[in-house]
Design a protein around this nucleic acid. Structure first.
Lengths: 293, 293
DNA sequence: GCGATTGCGTTCGTGAATGCAAGTGCGAGA
DNA sequence: TCTCGCACTTGCATTCACGAACGCAATCGC
């Protein structure tokens, strides 16, 4: 069974009973049909059809092939319907990936997206490594920092994440509010363990505050957030996130130079699909309306 | 889904993950694989695979195709096994056709054939019209008379059916045994209604016995047989059949000129199959050993 | 790092599969 | 019995799909 097209040809001959009818149905020439049948029978070593003046009638083997190919044809047609529909339907899996730091942004958006499209199964992938779109690991990626320029990826600007310095009310009660930048240098800071961090607010901190004032260091943003909330020191928070924590006190307002742009990245092959488009527009709407609706 | 070969190609790509691997498995060049995938995706309007440096990974649509094509592949392999086996296996239907007059000969042979090959379903077709092999209506036909010369049919000589004149014991008790052929002309005969019958013994009767001595006429051989058994007159019986009726008395021994040759006819396409060959040899053995074994 | 390996993409020339048209066989109808 | 028409068959010209070769990118291993 090395040639599925020949099976398909034999299927039509068995169904229509004549070579001409099969040729018409297949949109090929009669001679082609004959050659297919001959080749198939020669390889199988078994006659599939009785040739006579009124056309071809299937032998037992031919009838067996007819039954099998009939179900195959049905299944292929169903498959085609599903595949074609998949381009315009919003269903199946939607895989989104981002750094864990950005995940809180996505959870709300994904939840309301799922309310709008109940057939979608959402998978939010965050992990140590960057999940790569070109391997089909995700439909949409949320990236921060410099504009991604990977080939085959469609990059759209998303929002600018406003970053500000916060401390917990408990910290402020104990150490007071710094009056200006100079006063900051005497305070305690919660920041990233890696002094070579690429995020602009990290670099600002390095250049502005003596590194030994960073008294709580971690490599995990969630740990840092919890440390700030616990009163360990002053740290960066996305304003959007800080809004969810009334016990936080803003130490410094957001600065232009801290904000890192966010990018929505999709693979070019998936970008046009209705599902991805639906999610992208939904995500933008969600970000503009705010997470509190 | 106009091209099943392209689906098969996509199936291998989805299964192996690389174009090269699929090409190797299919025994074609990897450029061919790419062309198939491209054509299929273009027609469907949906990407089946994500292309990346390490190969192709299936999208949702591709995975769907993989599942469907996997079952198709399995079914085709099973089909191939069945079809190939059908050539060498003795199973399935065995359709045999003959005139009703010859059916008694076949019943015993078919029964014992079925004992030897329990997987075979036997269909013995007798009817008004001649069942024709070229339409696939039967595997084997038993024909009497002149050697059939239909094209595409394989004709083998079978046995000569010895015909003799019989009457029932009751008839003999009442009318006596005729001494010679002249004496026959005063007896009562059971014969065919049609004086133009082609069978040699019928023609002999027409030329030898006055037609008004045929006092029981019918167009059905079974009716004639029953009439002879009931004592209506003298009639022809195949010796093989007469042996089953001890109440029959042979009036005249078989004559060379009465015997009509029997022919085994098979369609050339089916003649080589193991099933047909098995039945032909079985039938010959059966006829030689006699039906009484 | 840097070559080796792997795997995809593209171009070009060839050959096999296809379409075309004439031929043949068979059965139906007059 | 003849003719007509349908359907398969066969030889030939054509096209299109295939294979070969090269290029390129990414990864792997030393």
């Amino acid at each position: 069974m090395d040639n599925w097209d020949e099976i398909r040809t034999a299927f039509q001959v068995a169904r229509r009973g004549t070579v001409s009818g099969a040729a018409e149905a297949l949109g090929v020439h009669h001679a082609t049909v004959i050659r297919h049948i001959d080749a198939l029978e020669r390889r199988l070593g078994v006659k599939l059809f009785q040739r006579h003046a009124r056309g071809y009638t299937a032998t037992e083997a031919g009838q067996d092939l007819l039954r099998v190919a009939q179900t195959t044809d049905d299944q292929f047609q169903q498959l085609e319907g599903r595949i074609r529909g998949r381009g315009s339907d919003v269903s199946g899996e939607l895989m989104v990936t981002s750094l864990v730091e950005l995940a809180p942004l996505l959870v709300g958006a994904l939840t309301s997206f799922q309310e709008a499209y109940p057939d979608v199964i959402v998978r939010l992938l965050t992990g140590e490594r960057l999940f790569r779109l070109e391997y089909g690991e995700a439909h949409v990626a949320l990236r921060a920092g410099r504009q991604p320029d990977e080939p085959d990826n469609v990059v759209q600007p998303f929002i600018h994440q406003d970053i500000a310095l916060y401390a917990s009310q408990a910290y402020v009660d104990r150490y007071g509010l710094p009056g200006d930048i100079e006063a900051l240098k005497t305070h305690r800071f919660v920041a990233h363990d890696d002094p070579d961090g690429r995020a602009p607010f990290q670099q600002w901190l390095r250049h502005t505050i003596p590194y030994d004032r960073v008294t709580f260091r971690s490599s995990d943003s969630r740990v840092m957030n919890q440390a700030v909330l616990a009163g360990a020191g002053i740290g960066f928070f996305a304003m959007r996130e800080a809004a969810a924590h009334p016990e936080l006190v803003q130490i410094m307002p957001p600065r232009e130079e801290w904000t890192s742009p966010l990018w929505l990245v999709t693979h070019v092959d998936l970008h046009r699909t209705a599902k991805v488009q639906a999610f992208l527009t939904h995500l933008k709407d969600y970000a503009n309306e705010g997470p509190c609706r």
